[in-house]
Nucleic acid binder design. Structure first.
Length: 939
RNA sequence: AGUCGCGUAGCUCAGUGGUAGAGCACCUCCUUGACAUGGAGGUGGUCGGUGGUUCGAUCCCACUCGCGACUACCA
């Protein structure tokens, strides 16, 4: 083995072997365990959020697979209607073309071509991450079988009256020229103005002032509304006003929606261009005057001079004319929420169109109930409240999009405009007994991308057919996703799952945090703070990183700023950390918080962890292979206390990992494994094996006991780490397993099968397979205490590690005597002792540096080793700390209420602790005096 | 406006009704035959503020300050 772990070539080699061997497919037997991959955009690339979530899903999948479950991680990609269409339109734009130039068919062909070219990018990146999805089941939302499911759902919902077509006000994106759903509209507060406009009263008597943030919509006003209780306007209710610039007159109406206190207390009502006005228009039977074209220019309903003007250009000229006519009372600066399309950032226009809607209330009810009664569990639980809030106020879902890329709506129109819904044209004709020569044309619109995503948990498994996979894996086990798509996706999957499968689509919903940069900012191209997970794996030079971050910017003026920040933050680019280090970082970050700030330093730390594991394994292999040979492992063996201890600690670690992963506490599981591997296995256990293996007084059986423990614990540790760090564990396991295989206990038979040639198919180690040994733990804990105290003296006295020192032990209690009697070789080696002597009553005691373990005193003679002044400082400090603790403990124990109310065990423990500290300080006080005397006379 | 969340060591974050933890950073010593991507030791926090419940609060409750997310919105 190399001295340092280098992940580079190892990873791809191992992944290819896994994939070609079919190891990712679910086994025939075992409990079904299924995770649906949230399908990424087919033409997208892997970002940090994906990498994070995929790591967690892969960890769960690998863990369950190793536990013997029939584990399916279902992969796939999403056609991402708007996003993909926009990318291709932009490509066309660069060629000076528009999709209308190509026509629908040619355009769609072009999108498929693009999908073919770029669709493999993200799946290739996923392979780099080690994702163990079953690629043989890879799905795409526009595959024929999934499209069939979409049509089926649409038709069934329509036949039940749960899908309807209606002319209503929708959110219209004037750039994309399509309707979008409420969720696709983002409202940001922006600075605008509030124009106060005078509407003259017909028949004289002055004017009414209305306040508006959108003066251009005046052209579509059909009323002015006031609050019915507003005394100022009582006389005007029912009268007519002159609508400026139009020659029309409109009535003053009363509606309690109007707040008298805001603005002038009078509101212009534009039913065709505002959601609230629309509803008021319905209440008062007001006419709707649409003044815009689909791309938000003024249409023929506007006075001729404004026609064809863009809405914002029109605003200026309308305000100018009003000012000229003396109809502007004032203009105030005003903050308002501006609705923008999440894809185009264009200001969304409420627009009257015919669209398809899903009637949502009947679907929402069972979906709400499924969470309320616990059939679906949100983790962390508080996300269920977010879900409830949304579901209880949910509105009908506009599912039609005026796009070309997507699932075409299965509705056909005759020339009279009558529509028929069916699985295909033939079915429509048959169902409605239409004449064969009746001309039908299919609806031009496609469905919202999320419509097909909502079916993902069952459409990928074969629905509407009743397939074995569907039977086996639905309901799936857990959904792992971000809170940003709880409404877009999670809620809709639950609704559709309840509706069409009659059961929940998943039992748990694990909501991950959102990966942000180290400052807590969201990662985005515009901010220039994006990190490509692949660059963390392979590393990237500074110049390449800068050019990656600054190319293709929407706002080129940010380039310099981004470049500067990048060069400052990564003066040497990014080092190659390897996949396992990245994955372990993600796991360790996956705590309960909703925002996760990603620090590069942590990946470095876990890269070091990989190296630590590598070198620990290197030590084990060198010792076991080197001086013994594997046959030697099978003879009589006599495990040491350290051997029993490490096995016991391993059992505790496995129990912690198990309970943590069950609760999706990846951070706890990662920490438990990290601490065991580094602090217990490497720092202590490996060191404790050395006195045995290299000692002159140990028997072959003892050495064998230690070698066997080394090999078997390492082998099982690799299995335990594998779900989080698949590559390095596989690489090492391949070398360790031949040594370990003959030694594996009966419980581990699955790991011991000849056919198992990969750690990913071996059994996950269970805590119950390893004995807890409190006796060994107690002994080793005491041993560690002794060693740590001596090291503390050495460290604080600056005694070189190479310098061996004498150690005297005074007042040894029974456990300490046992320790010295049986484990002196450990003390010698790990504390760097030259000699170890127990002082008996009456023995001469040289002046020494000292430390205490419970009641036992450790003495390191000062002569030639130690600076008396330093020891005085040290002792004073320890005594001071103890004194402070004694004070606190006394305070507690002197308090009768504490003694009466606290748990007896606690009181007892405090009393014991107090007695111990008192004894120690008494002893150390005397010690201090001795050193002082020496300090005074000696140096 | 409503819902949810956050404020703990220089930084990023865990955590618990009973004398505060990790990683990174920092200081001292050490190239000892697994590992300098390392080893040994160490410094560092009145757990946002105030009040309450309690024998005891960083943890529970109320209020408050500061930050954030989401949902719905007043033209």
């Amino acid at each position: 083995m190399d001295k340092a772990y280098s992940p580079g070539e190892i990873e791809t080699r191992i992944y290819e072997r896994w994939e070609t061997s079919g190891a990712f497919a679910p086994t025939a037997d075992g409990q079904p365990y299924c995770i649906m991959l949230p399908p990424p955009n087919v033409t997208g690339t892997l970002h940090m959020g994906h990498a994070f979530q995929h790591t967690l899903m892969d960890t769960l999948t690998r863990w369950h697979r190793m536990r013997g479950d029939s584990a399916l991680w279902q992969p796939g990609t999403d056609h991402a209607g708007i996003a993909t269409q926009m990318v291709v339109e932009r490509q066309l734009g660069a060629e000076g073309k528009h999709r209308l130039d190509l026509g629908r068919e040619a355009f769609i062909e072009r999108v498929w071509k693009w999908k073919g070219e770029s669709g493999s990018t993200i799946t290739r990146q996923m392979r780099r991450l080690g994702t163990s999805v079953d690629w043989s089941r890879d799905k795409f939302t526009m595959d024929p079988d999934l499209s069939r499911a979409v049509t089926e759902v649409f038709v069934r919902l329509h036949d039940e009256g749960l899908i309807y077509r209606g002319k209503r006000l929708v959110n219209w994106d004037p750039v994309l020229l399509t309707a979008v759903s409420d969720l696709e509209v983002l409202s940001e507060e922006e600075q605008g103005s509030l124009w106060h406009i005078r509407y003259p009263i017909v028949g004289g008597g002055g004017h009414v002032v209305v306040a508006t943030t959108r003066p251009e919509t005046l052209l579509g006003d059909t009323a002015v509304a006031v609050n019915p209780d507003d005394e100022r306007y009582q006389a005007l209710i029912g009268r007519q006003l002159e609508l400026p610039l139009t020659g029309r007159t409109i009535p003053v109406i009363a509606d309690s929606y109007v707040e008298a206190a805001f603005g002038s207390g009078a509101v212009k009502i534009t039913p065709a261009h505002d959601f609230n006005d629309y509803e008021m228009g319905q209440r008062h039977s007001l006419p709707q005057v649409n003044i815009f074209t689909p791309d938000a220019k003024l249409n023929e309903n506007a006075p001729e001079r404004f026609r064809g003007l863009d809405r914002f250009v029109a605003r200026k000229s309308i305000v100018a004319e009003l000012e000229g006519a003396g109809l502007i009372e004032k203009i105030e600066p005003h903050k308002l929420k501006v609705p923008r399309g999440d894809r185009t950032n264009a200001v969304i226009e409420p627009y009257l169109t015919d669209q398809w809607y899903v009637k949502i209330a009947p679907l929402a009810e069972p979906a709400l109930k499924a969470v309320e009664d616990g059939r679906i569990r949100f983790v962390p639980d508080n996300w269920s409240k977010t879900y409830y809030e949304w579901m209880r106020n949910i509105k009908d879902w506009c599912v039609s999009r005026q796009l070309w890329w997507g699932h075409r709506i299965p509705a056909w129109y005759d020339e009279a405009g009558q529509f028929y819904v069916g699985r295909d044209e033939a079915e429509v004709r048959k169902k409605h007994s239409l004449a064969p020569d009746l001309k039908l044309r299919q609806d031009e619109d496609v469905l919202d991308t999320w419509f097909s995503s909502a079916l993902w948990p069952f459409s990928t498994l074969g629905w509407p057919d009743n397939t074995p996979s569907l039977n086996k894996f639905y309901p799936t086990s857990v959904l792992v996703t971000g809170f940003d798509i709880i409404f877009f996706w999670v809620a809709r999957m639950i609704m559709m799952g309840m509706k069409f499968m009659g059961d929940v689509p998943f039992k748990d919903v694990y909501i991950t945090g959102l990966i942000r940069d180290e400052n807590g900012d969201k990662m985005s191209k515009a901010k220039g703070n994006i990190i490509d997970p692949i660059d963390l794996i392979d590393g990237i030079g500074l110049d390449a990183l800068v050019s990656k971050r600054t190319s293709g910017l929407m706002q080129p003026h940010l380039k310099d700023k981004i470049e500067k920040a990048t060069r400052k933050q990564f003066p040497e680019g990014i080092a190659p950390f390897g996949t396992d280090a990245l994955r372990f970082t993600f796991a360790a970050l996956a705590g309960p918080s909703r925002d996760i700030n990603f620090e590069l330093g942590r990946v470095g730390g876990y890269r070091n962890f990989c190296n630590k594991l590598w070198n620990g394994a290197r030590f084990v292999l060198m010792t076991v292979e080197g001086d013994a040979g594997q046959a030697d492992l099978s003879g009589a063996a006599e495990p040491s206390v350290a051997d029993r201890w490490i096995v016991s600690r391993f059992a505790a670690t496995l129990a912690q990992v198990d309970s943590s992963l069950r609760e999706y506490r990846f951070d706890f599981a990662a920490t438990a494994l990290y601490e065991f591997t580094w602090y217990e296995f490497c720092d202590w256990y490996l060191e404790l094996t050395k006195p045995v293996l290299q000692g002159e007084n140990t028997t072959e059986a003892q050495k064998r006991g230690t070698r066997r423990t080394l090999v078997t614990v390492l082998e099982a540790l690799l299995r335990a780490l594998h779900p989080m760090m698949p590559f390095i564990t596989e690489e090492i396991w391949q070398r360790v397993r031949p040594l370990a295989a003959p030694l594996l206990s009966a419980q581990n038979t699955r790991a011991n099968q000849k056919s198992v040639d990969s750690v990913m198919l071996a059994a996950y180690p269970a805590a119950s397979d390893y004995a807890r040994d409190t006796d060994a733990e107690t002994q080793v804990n005491l041993l560690k205490e002794f060693i740590l105290k001596v090291r503390q003296i050495r460290g604080e006295m600056n005694i070189a590690p190479s310098r061996k020192i004498p150690l005297l032990v005074r007042d040894a209690d029974e456990p300490a005597q046992l320790l010295i009697g049986t484990h002196a070789h450990y003390l010698h080696r790990l504390a760097g002792l030259e000699s170890l002597k127990v002082l008996h009553t009456g023995d001469a005691e040289p002046v020494s540096a000292s430390a205490m373990v419970v009641g036992t005193t450790l003495l390191v003679p000062l002569a030639g080793l130690i600076d008396a002044a330093a020891e005085i400082d040290r002792l004073t400090k320890v005594i001071g700390k103890n004194a402070s603790d004694i004070g606190k403990l006394r305070g507690k124990l002197d308090n009768e209420s504490f003694v009466r109310n606290a748990k007896p065990a606690l009181v007892e423990a405090d009393r014991a602790k107090l007695a111990e500290l008192l004894g120690q300080n008494d002893s150390m006080g005397k010690q201090l005096e001795r050193v002082r005397r020496l300090g005074g006379s000696g140096s």
